[in-house]
Amino acid sequence: MRKTKGFTFRKIFPFLLQSSLTRPSPFRAYSFVPFSPLAMLDPTILTIGGIVLGIAIIERILERWGVIDLVDQLAKIMRFILPVAFYSALFYFFATFIL
């Protein structure tokens, strides 16, 4: 039978490695997201969202009343207005809240 020899951890790794295990000096970290989610409560963004939501509610009410021609015309207009309003609000948000 072979005789096994035991090694301690300090014999395998030299003493010089202990200096590299110390904590690095602190450094400043900067965030790539400099705004808070609460910044979405801006009155301009809430106004744009309220207008779009109001138009959608009016469209549903007109649909229930049976005024389908007016609903179709409003839907054609909203296909253009909704993306423009969304991207305008998004651009405004990033333009005003990024430092």
Rank of each mutant, 00 (worst) to 15 (best):
R2V: 11
K3I: 13
K3Y: 05
K3E: 11
K3M: 11
T4Q: 12
T4V: 14
K5A: 15
G6A: 15
F7A: 12
F7P: 01
F7H: 07
F7I: 07
F9R: 12
F9E: 10
R10M: 10
R10Q: 12
K11E: 14
K11A: 12
F13E: 06
P14A: 11
P14G: 15
F15N: 07
F15H: 08
L17G: 12
Q18Y: 14
Q18F: 09
Q18L: 14
S19Y: 13
S19R: 13
S19Q: 08
S19L: 14
S20G: 01
S20N: 13
L21E: 13
T22I: 07
P24L: 08
S25I: 02
P26S: 11
P26N: 02
P26D: 01
P26I: 07
F27H: 05
F27T: 10
F27C: 02
R28F: 04
Y30P: 00
Y30E: 11
Y30R: 11
S31K: 07
S31V: 03
S31C: 08
V33T: 08
S36R: 12
S36T: 14
P37S: 07
P37R: 13
A39L: 06
M40H: 05
L41T: 09
L41Q: 07
L41E: 07
D42G: 05
D42N: 14
T44P: 00
T44H: 10
L46M: 09
I48P: 03
G49M: 03
G49D: 06
V52N: 03
L53H: 02
L53G: 08
L53W: 10
I55D: 04
I55F: 05
I57R: 01
I57D: 01
I58F: 04
I58L: 13
R60Q: 12
L62Y: 09
L62K: 04
L62I: 02
E63K: 12
E63A: 09
E63Y: 10
W65H: 13
G66C: 04
V67I: 15
I68Y: 07
I68S: 13
I68N: 10
D69P: 03
D69K: 13
L70V: 12
L70W: 05
L70N: 08
V71I: 01
Q73M: 11
A75M: 04
A75L: 06
K76L: 08
I77R: 15
R79A: 00
F80A: 10
L82G: 07
P83I: 04
V84N: 02
V84L: 10
A85W: 00
A85E: 03
A85L: 03
A85I: 02
A85V: 01
A85F: 01
F86D: 04
F86G: 10
S88Y: 10
S88W: 09
S88E: 04
A89Q: 03
A89N: 13
L90Y: 07
F91T: 08
F91K: 04
Y92L: 03
F93N: 08
F94E: 01
F97P: 01
F97C: 07
I98H: 03
L99F: 09
